[in-house]
Write a protein that binds this DNA or RNA. Structure first.
Length: 306
DNA sequence: ACAAGCGACGC
DNA sequence: CCAGCTTCGCTTGT
């Protein structure tokens, strides 16, 4: 069972990533995302102007068909919104991503499955999806700079340095065998706002004052999406840019701004004490979001039931 | 299973 | 390029 499924994944999927060359304009982006949803099998937005999508089923894994489909998608976006897009088509998310990077602006790069190894070999490992500055530095220490070199690394050493999961991912992604599926986009799970203080401080009153607009913003986001939060977090960024947080979970989700202000004030009192240093930037985050409507009627029900 | 805290990555 | 925002994973503790 795992084998059959893995094989299907390995041979069958053509995720592609699309990137619009003109950013901004959330509204336009949302409109395009909506349109895209009807043109692909699965759409996974990964940012305001990017999304992975899968065409495996509707093209029966045929890359020629997939290329035509992508071309028509690019044309639709251009016709509707006068925006160009850059797309990579390949056998894994990471390959598709690299292809789209390479194709911009307004391009389409197709990496056939049998070309994958040759395509990946000379690329710097630092360009791989999921490999950032920290991982790059570690790889450099190991004498690894290209993807080809990464494929030849000792699996045991990768696992030792990066852990079983991420080490395994690195090896997989280097061979184009990363098998992360394209999944449907999810609802947001948190909202946050961070501001830079006029002067470094740990004084809760001063922080609340300067963060006030941020609290309003978060509350507006909650209201706009009819959501309540279960957890509220005070975020403090120190001068060295390290982050300290203090969070509190409620028994019942709330969305009321007064609670928000009161909680954030006491959280910053605690955070300032435990940290013992001034903050350069401060923020608020709400998470554990749930639909306010549903929760409200549940509360109503419980109240009436009594 | 959930809560809390931290860090890395990507956009 | 940076700042700000989001998501995810790891770790520890209950």
């Amino acid at each position: 069972m795992p084998i059959a499924q893995a094989k299907r994944k390995l041979e069958g999927r053509d995720p592609a990533i699309i990137r619009m060359d003109h950013e901004k304009y959330e509204v336009i982006s949302a409109r395009i995302m909506d349109a895209l949803e009807n043109m692909v099998d699965t759409l996974e937005p990964t940012g305001i102007d990017e999304a992975f999508f899968d065409l495996t089923a509707s093209t029966t894994g045929d890359y020629a068909k997939a290329r035509e489909r992508v071309a028509s998608i690019k044309k639709a976006i251009f016709d509707d919104e006068y925006l160009t897009s850059s797309v990579g088509l390949g056998r894994s998310k990471a390959v598709a991503k690299l292809g789209s990077d390479m194709s911009k602006p307004n391009g389409l790069t197709v990496v056939l499955p049998e070309e994958t190894a040759k395509f990946l070999a000379p690329i710097p490992a630092s360009k791989l999806y999921g490999v950032g500055p920290k991982t790059s530095a570690s790889l450099t220490e190991m004498g690894i700079s290209t993807v080809a070199e990464l494929t030849m690394a000792e699996p045991a050493e990768l696992e030792r340095r990066f852990g079983r999961k991420f080490g395994g991912y690195l090896l997989a992604v280097a061979t184009g065998m990363d098998d992360g599926k394209v999944t449907k986009g999810l609802e947001p799970t948190q909202f946050s706002r961070i501001v830079t203080l006029k002067q470094d401080t740990r004084d809760p009153k001063e922080i609340l004052d300067q963060l006030s607009g941020g609290i309003d913003y978060v509350h507006e986001k909650l209201a706009a999406s009819s959501r309540s939060f279960k957890t509220i977090t005070a975020i403090g960024v120190l001068i060295d840019l390290s982050t300290r947080t203090k969070s509190r979970s409620l028994e019942t989700p709330l969305d009321d701004p007064t609670t928000l202000r009161g909680s954030i004030l006491s959280l910053f009192e605690e955070l300032g004490k435990s940290t013992g240093k001034d903050f350069r930037r401060v923020g608020i985050r709400v998470s554990g979001l749930s639909a306010t409507g549903t929760q409200g009627s549940l509360n109503e029900f419980l109240r009436l039931a009594r």
